[in-house]
């Protein structure tokens, strides 16, 4: 994680391994997605918990995927909704051959407005980097 991050460990960035991420509070979320059939159960940690843990403060988070996909997400999304950074789907670990290592998942079944197409591009999978601005 880079940008406006309070806690860093490599230069101005915070590099997190699986053990560090496992220390964050675990959350579970069951919701439909736009690319799968039926409800899916995800496990992981809340995006706002990660930002709080690293004392990250900003208005926008730029999420980058392994295929160089990039999406800008308002931090307000993480404050208003329980946005999950999932590492498990239906009790199976997400790998980079699928949507891993992390997949940004919105609780779209709990909020009708999240079913709008303008939220779908924020579901970044194969997430590996966040830049806080």
């Amino acid at each position: 994680m880079s940008g406006e991050v309070g806690l860093t460990n490599v230069d101005d960035e915070a590099h997190l391994d699986a053990a560090m991420l496992a220390a964050l509070p675990r959350e579970r979320l069951t919701t439909h997605t736009s690319v799968t059939d039926g409800p899916q159960t995800f496990e992981g940690f809340l995006a706002r918990d990660l930002l709080d843990a690293l004392h990250a403060e900003g208005e926008t988070v730029t999420a980058l995927a392994l295929n160089d996909y990039l999406a800008e997400i308002p931090v307000e999304d993480f404050e208003r909704y329980d946005v999950l950074l999932a590492d498990t789907m239906n009790c199976e670990r997400l790998t980079r051959r699928d949507k891993g290592p992390l997949w940004i998942v919105y609780p779209r079944d709990d909020h009708a407005e999240l079913q709008d197409i303008r939220y779908d591009y924020r579901w970044v999978w194969q997430l590996y980097r966040l830049e806080v601005e």
């Binding site: 690319v35 799968t36 059939d37 790998t95 980079r96 051959r97 194969q126």
Partner: peptide
């Protein structure tokens, strides 16, 4: 290997239900 995994991810997505 990373590129193959990424390609696998894309094809897996195409193999999912709606797609």
């Amino acid at each position: 290997e990373l590129r193959l995994d990424i390609l696998s991810s894309r094809l897996t997505l195409m193999d999912d239900g709606p797609q």
